[in-house]
Design a protein around this nucleic acid. Structure first.
Length: 870
RNA sequence: GGGGGAUUAGCUCAGUUGGCUAGAGCGUUUGGCUGGCAGCCAAAAGGUCAUCGGUUCGACUCCGAUAUUCUCCA
């Protein structure tokens, strides 16, 4: 069975069991501080498990693109070494939200595997949670009894808390799980050792394929468990592994999910898969990683140096590194695989097709820059090798190479090994740990349990229509971090405060109680669909009713910027073309920032046209038309612009100004006229194929123009109201350059004159040409003069003195031959003579300077100079 | 967000513990030689040593801040 069909069959099966099929959520997560990437099928439903939202359907099924780079079995550095771990993978799942529970979940899973996919029952094992005394949890008898009716006893395995009790994190929903494992070993192998002994033992051919989680508890901050009012089912089946089973191969990489990529890698790199272990690992690494990176970029996550972007960069660089070392790829090549990938998976994931060009460009650029880094690292490593005499390289040196110059440690180790050098790996790890601790401390956040003030569901955001509301606090908690200090997070029963999202900053404002107490809300954020208000303090009586008031001025300016962003987006598409797609957006009260796909610099003419386009829309006084109750499909059919990598609910909000229509949750002006004016203040690149425009509107634009006008008036005033100020400045610059040259040549003349003058003053003492006198030159001039005289006279001893800003300066020049013959040292001379001017100094044997604060001593110092030649 | 590094001629980079008027290669210009695929020889021009401040007799070099950039960690 082809992988395409395996996927379709799964969804079809659960559809027949009354599940509704939903699309995969984006791989990159935006509103959950504890998670960067979707790492399991349940992530997009987390809010339902937490009780922060209600699903449209109680039975749901999907295939979810997931990314794992860390965790108990998923160290990035291990991917590719075996045949069954991946960074990016698909998770097939079915869910029940307070609907069916263990019975249906177990029977259906078995039905699908054995009757639809027709997997031999003899190779399947199931596991059940054995209970845990410390937690006070008994054996999951319900699941055990259910399995007993289907599977013989010897195929049921009892699993411990580590394997069979699933938790979302330190806190939150959790419960026992039941896993289905498959034994793909040969009959011979099976005879040697029963499959049940290999379950959960990391055997490549005895693997878990499906995990059925029965969510029935909530883990609190103090570690205790609490029974949930509603019970849920959360299942996840690894798609690639399922394909392996159904296609009768022994490795995920031998399924048709990977074979097209592997074939292409062999083509491009002229290598062969299946002959040599190192080559095989490299090919697997590249095949796996290009998937992760391409999917992430298609979801709008570019490689970068922070957060999720950094993870993507690391994955891509690992692929490049393996290609570099084991497949001898010294030029970008990973990007060439995108075409194959998008052809192969584009049907199930259309974003891969529409974002193909961008993926290729971004990956190629990243490859180029990393290859440069590698080149530089190789040179540096060479130097380190040359410097280490005892064939040992310290961990500290290796760490510096890694930390500062980004040179991969395993490459360092490999090269050293080839040259017969050893590396102190332990010391390296120690340095790395130090760095990790530093970073962790800097971003540590402790959050307490939610304190429930009053029960009830929250209505959520009501701030589209009003900026004030009577609210009650539902719950609050205290958080502490180094960055922000102590903060209180509060959830209201409804709120006019817009939470940060869609690029728009969170609202600020106040919470007023009836007795006049005021608590400042410093930011509003969204976590798992819950709107959280941040404050430095808590009201005295949290159970009272408050008036929540949004900072009107800030909101108005932000709204102007957000609406302008939409017009800008439209303007860009109109001026540059419809290939322009939003790649990032930031809307603040003082400016807006918009990143978009476009492959060349936006010229100043184009920028002007774009500005003009937006300002025309502003002057057309277009009213805001919004529709909050559309379905996604209706909106798209109406021509609304939706964004890749954005998660949309069943009901979307469409925001329309004239012909501009976007799906958007942000706040906007009632009429484009409220934007006043739009001004682009910068344009530049953020990555290959991505440009960034920064712009201002409203009062900021006004201030900008006022400031510019003021500067210009001042400038004009300085230029005596010249008719053409630009020309006047150019003239000034030219004149200035001319004058500089003249001054320079005059100074040269002066020095020349002085030099000729001084030549006659030089007298001979004991065969040495000697001159000591005061001159009217600065330190540089004296030096210059000394060396010029030095060129013309042999056996020269010079002592110049000058007075500058009330300070005295001495300088001594001694011809090199004199230094040797007479054992003179200019440094010593100025140091000794420096006493007369109450100062000190030094320098080299042939030229030295000294400074002091007593110019009256100059005469004495000059007199004494002669003594050095006696 | 935290740490480390880098910033020197148009480009790629040297510059040892602060001190000889900041160098090289490529490129540019000029002159001469030469029938070639980086032609040869000679000469010249080109530098606020990222910016600002500090220490010092003296800072490209040391210290602090800023900007830009690379990189690791979270």
């Amino acid at each position: 069975m082809k992988s395409q069909d395996i996927r379709t069959q799964f969804l079809k099966f659960f559809k027949s069991k009354d599940h509704s099929v939903v699309a995969s959520a984006p791989m990159v997560i935006k509103d959950d501080p504890t998670l960067m990437f979707t790492n399991a099928g349940m992530n997009q439903f987390k809010e339902y498990f937490l009780g922060n939202g209600t699903p449209s359907d109680t039975r749901i099924t999907d295939t979810q693109k997931c990314l794992r780079v860390s965790g108990k079995h998923n160290d990035l550095e291990e991917v590719g070494k075996d045949t069954y771990h991946h960074t990016m993978f698909e998770m097939l799942g079915n869910w029940s939200f307070g609907d069916y529970f263990k019975k249906e979940a177990i029977t259906w899973a078995w039905e699908l595997l054995t009757e639809v996919y027709k997997i031999d029952k003899e190779i399947l094992y199931v596991s059940v949670f054995e209970g845990n005394e410390a937690e006070g949890l008994p054996l999951d008898k319900e699941a055990f009894d259910l399995w007993k009716q289907i599977v013989p006893d010897e195929r049921i395995i009892l699993g411990n808390k580590k394997d069979n009790f699933w938790e979302m994190g330190d806190q939150g929903p959790c419960g026992p799980s039941s896993e289905i494992h498959v034994d793909l070993r040969s009959a011979e192998e099976k005879a040697k050792m029963p499959g049940r002994d290999l379950v959960n033992q990391d055997h490549p051919l005895v693997v878990e394929i499906w995990n059925l989680v029965f969510i029935q508890f909530n883990r609190k901050a103090d570690g205790s468990l609490e029974k949930l009012p509603q019970q849920h089912v959360d299942t996840g089946m690894g798609f690639e592994r399922l394909c392996m089973v159904l296609q009768g191969v022994k490795s995920n990489y031998d399924t048709d999910v990977f074979t097209p990529l592997i074939k292409e890698i062999q083509n491009i790199t002229s290598s062969t898969y299946g002959k040599d272990q190192e080559t095989d690992i490299a090919i697997r690494v590249i095949a796996d990683h290009v998937r992760a990176v391409a999917f992430a970029i298609a979801d709008g996550q570019l490689p970068g140096s922070t957060g999720a972007g950094y993870v993507i960069r690391r994955i891509l660089r690992r692929a490049i590194r393996y290609g570099f070392t084991f497949l001898n790829q010294k030029e970008p090549f990973v990007y060439k695989l995108v075409a194959t990938l998008s052809k192969q998976m584009g049907e199930a994931f259309p974003e891969l097709v529409s974002q193909k060009n961008l993926c290729e460009n971004v990956i190629r650029e990243e490859e180029n820059s990393f290859l440069r880094t590698l080149d530089q690292g190789l040179v540096l490593l060479d130097e380190i090798i040359k410097e280490s005499a005892d064939k040992k390289v310290s961990g500290k040196k290796a760490f510096e190479l890694y930390d500062t110059y980004g040179f991969p440690i395993d490459l360092t180790a490999l090269i050293l090994q080839e040259k017969g050098f050893s590396l102190d790996q332990e010391e390296f790890e120690k340095e790395l740990q130090k760095q990790k601790d530093r970073s962790r401390n800097a971003s540590k956040m402790i959050s307490g349990d939610w304190q429930i003030v009053s029960d009830g569901e929250t209505e959520g955001f009501v701030g589209y229509d009003s900026l004030e509301a009577e609210v009650k606090i539902l719950r609050y908690r205290k958080t502490e971090s180094k960055k922000e200090g102590e903060l209180y997070q509060m959830v209201f029963d409804k709120t006019p405060f817009y939470p940060e999202g869609g690029g728009q900053v969170g609202d600020r404002g106040v919470l007023e109680s009836t007795d006049g107490e005021v608590v400042y809300i410093i930011d509003t954020r969204k976590e798992n669909n819950l709107i959280i208000h941040l404050a430095k303090s808590l009201p005295k009586n949290p159970s009272a009713t408050f008036k929540a008031v949004v900072n009107v001025a800030q909101r108005a300016r932000t709204a102007a910027n957000h609406s302008a962003t939409h017009l800008l987006h439209q303007g860009l598409r109109s001026v540059l073309g419809t290939h322009v797609e939003q790649k990032g957006s930031m809307v603040q009260s003082d400016y807006l920032r918009f990143d978009f796909s476009h492959f060349s610099k936006v010229s100043s003419e184009e920028l002007q046209q774009i500005e003009h386009f937006v300002n025309k829309k502003i002057s057309e006084r277009l009213p805001l038309v919004e529709n909050r109750e559309m379905t996604y499909q209706e909106a798209i059919n109406d021509g609304a612009i939706a964004l890749f990598g954005e998660k949309y609910g069943d009901k979307v909000r469409a925001v329309k100004f004239g012909d501009s229509m976007e799906l958007c949750g942000g706040t906007h002006v009632g009429n484009t006229a409220d934007i006043w004016h739009f001004k682009i203040i910068s344009e530049g690149a953020v990555a290959s194929g991505i440009r960034r425009i920064e712009a201002i509107t409203n009062e900021a634009a006004k201030e900008y123009f006022t400031g510019q006008t003021e500067t210009f008036s001042e400038l004009k005033a300085i230029l005596k109201n010249a008719k053409d100020p630009v020309k006047a400045v150019v003239n000034l610059q030219e004149e200035n350059a001319e004058l500089k040259k003249q001054v320079e040549s005059l100074l040269k003349d002066k020095a020349k004159n002085l030099k000729t003058e001084l030549k006659y003053e030089i007298k001979e003492i004991n065969g040495t040409n000697f001159l000591a006198r005061k001159v009217d030159l600065d330190a540089g001039g004296i030096k210059d003069l000394s060396f010029q005289l030095g060129d013309e006279f042999e056996n020269l001893f010079l002592l110049f003195a000058t007075e500058q800003n009330g300070k005295a300066l001495l300088s001594c020049y001694i011809s090199k031959n004199l230094v040797e013959e007479k054992d003179l040292h200019a440094g010593k001379v100025v140091k000794e003579l420096g006493k007369f001017i109450q100062g000190g100094g030094g320098g080299q044997p042939f030229y030295a300077t000294a400074g002091g604060k007593n110019p009256d001593g100059i005469v004495e110092a000059l007199k004494k100079a002669e003594e050095y030649l006696q």
